[in-house]
Amino acid sequence: MLAVETQKLSRSFGELRAVQQLDLAIEKGEIFGFLGSNGAGKTTTISMLTGQLGASAGVARVMGLDVSIDSKALSHMIGVVFEYPNLYLRLTAYQNLHFAAQLYDVPSARIDVLLERMGLTDRAHDRVNEFSSGMKQKLLIARALVHQPSVLFLDEPTSGLDPSFARGIRELVKSLREDGTTVFLTTHYMDEAEQLCDRVAFIEQGEIVLQGAPKDLKRAFGMPLVKVELKDGNAATLSLEIEEDRRQLAVWSESNNLLSIHSQEASLEDVFVEAVGKPIEA
């Protein structure tokens, strides 16, 4: 059974086709990146997969459940971290998690485990309106994990965070894979997707234009180039696919003239530009 599966999933708002004919197949335990510019259809897709929004056409299943039929069972399978920090700001971190735990009928002991994991134990009884953006984001993730969901939807989890908090969130996402949680991640940060995701899909104007493992995509779209700096002050860019360049590299290596070699393979951003025809717009 797949963790997330869609067949010809579509959603229109009047004349606007927000998502068109989306086919996805995400394995259990996979971190799947859903990449695209703002307005490409990422959030609409998450809204459909989490049962917040009905589809205009097509089918979506999460852990084998048709999302349009059994929303109550679906709610126990999924956790959602929204792009906007939608917490109860007048309540404390503990009270926010306690409310979520009661909604999911989870014992209160789980709250302490999550606060500890997120590094929020010391701030548990502070009101959320005193929290920084990074702390709110951690609390959002803790709330989404309160009932130990099989699939976690993360909508732009590091957007607007300072680098240290963003790194912390990324480490957290990686640790979820070890727990066996499937992660559906939307982001417009390509380096983040490259670091975290087993597979990615690029969405543009509601359609998937390309999907696959980041390594495979970079290999398919990039040239295996290396930039070489020599001890005599010269530099050169060589292709590993050209016999003559490979021979030249070997000569420099044998003559101990190499100072540095830098891989010049395509980044995921280059692949996106190649596939979509324009850079990603944040």
Binding site: Q52, H76, I78, F82, N86, L87, Y88, A100, L103, D105
Partner: peptide, 14 residues
């Protein structure tokens, strides 16, 4: 306004 309604609607609450 705080979009907490979206959290409620993906929870078991209707």
């Amino acid at each position: 306004e705080w979009q907490t309604i979206r959290f409620l609607l993906v929870s078991p609450a209707s």
